[in-house]
Design a protein around this nucleic acid. Structure first.
Ligand code: MN
Ligand code: MN
Ligand code: MN
Ligand code: MN
Lengths: 222, 222
DNA sequence: AAATACTTTTAGGCAAACTTAAATTTTAAT
DNA sequence: ATTAAAATTTAAGTTTGCCTAAAAGTATTT
């Protein structure tokens, strides 16, 4: 059963909200997809009809196992194309999301497997998000938010959990990209802002909003 | 003014019929796009409204300058993706057309220019069709049909003017791909069939239907 | 417990792109 | 020149995916 582009976008949006642990309200989906709550209710009926979601009126949407499987495949395609765009075509990490948003809807098993092979089966996309394999399994990096990082410990940036070009450009300009090494000097108890120090650069401060979207790993000092 | 996928497919179909010198009838377009004449009339109204075609009732469709420009851009995208699929992902020439039929609708100037650059600005696609440049200009190979080739002259295959997987597979199996060298031993006056000889292989015969879709170039004997 | 605010659904509508069936026009054949 | 055949358009209807406005349900405040 072949999904339409609109259906795929809804499925993916629902999946994303679910995996952030939020309850998937009509409003939330509408906001994410820049559409109206009434349109979401409308689509919800069709998706439930197709057994992709479960919809309890007034209480939110939930993907079925089938829906979740579909979502993961869409995400696989999205992230593989993002890798392609960055690694082969030379786009920056802040440019690729809207393009992948289109490319992800080309549903051809052989195409995507060959693309994966061409890219040497990358495990993470340009934002540090894991790429599900052909069977749909994947695992996250060890996840620590920069806003909760241990102080004065060597850290490495592993993921930025927001596709907005504004954030990605801002981080780039501050010298923060995937793999950047840094330390947290202090976390301001009042506003949650984080003072960070990159090698050979003066320390600077990131707001909590920013720090809450940046994930890091610790690594030994040796 | 952004075209829909359906509109792009119509524009391209009309362009293809026009460039084959055929009159672009409602029926012909419907047949090419596997839809109904009534749907073509319907779309024709919308396209005329948008100044992409001129439609004289009962007498066929004609692209405007604007429509032609659009068509050429779509074809550029189509053929570049075909190159990508063959050269980078390892697809065969008989597999790529349906995939490119989808990929061509991703309208992003930067994407397509970077793709062209990545592919080192190919001039011809995997079927020997010329790829328009970013400004829309291109030129055909010198065009001689195999069915009208000079006898006993060294020839090189330069283009196959039909995307059907069946034809392309048949030719491949006969040893005929782009660049294949061959001679025409004789052309049967009755049924137009063509006897061809490849190096180091026994001669064999191609039907007129097949020979009418294969283009060749002559080359000096030296 | 009522009143108010907020969220969600329903109702009614619209545009794109398709379909079939009927009417019309063009073309081909007697 | 009629007539028959073929092509084309018109008419009417469907599905998808969206919208606004109104109604209904849920949550929050007083
Ligand atoms: Mn998308
Ligand atoms: Mn990503
Ligand atoms: Mn297409
Ligand atoms: Mn081609």
């Amino acid at each position: 059963m072949q999904l339409s582009i609109a259906e795929e976008n809804y499925i993916k949006a629902i999946y994303q909200l679910e995996s952030q642990g939020q309850k998937v309200s009509t409003n939330a989906v509408a906001h994410l997809l820049r559409t109206r709550p009434a349109s979401v209710t409308d689509m919800a009926n069709r998706l439930q009809q197709k057994k992709l979601i479960h919809h309890e009126k007034y209480y939110g949407l939930q993907l079925t196992a089938l829906g979740k499987k579909q979502a993961i495949h869409i995400i696989r395609r999205h992230r593989l194309w993002e890798c392609f765009l960055v690694e082969k075509l030379g786009f920056r990490w802040d440019e690729v999301h809207p393009l992948a948003e289109e490319l992800e809807h080309i549903r051809d098993e052989r195409l995507i497997e060959r693309l994966a092979h061409f890219l040497q089966h990358p495990e993470f996309d340009p934002h540090g998000d894991p790429i599900p394999d052909a069977k749909g399994s994947f695992q996250q990096h060890e996840q620590i938010l920069l806003s909760q990082a241990p102080l004065n410990h060597p850290l490495r940036v592993t993921r930025v959990a927001d596709q907005s070009a504004a954030l990605l450009q801002y981080l780039t300009q501050k010298g923060i990209v995937l793999g950047t090494r840094l330390r947290v000097l202090q976390i301001n108890a009042y506003d949650g802002s984080v003072e960070v120090k990159l090698m050979k650069k003066p320390a600077f401060t990131l707001s909590r909003e920013v720090a809450q979207h940046v994930y890091i790993q610790t690594y030994g000092k040796n």
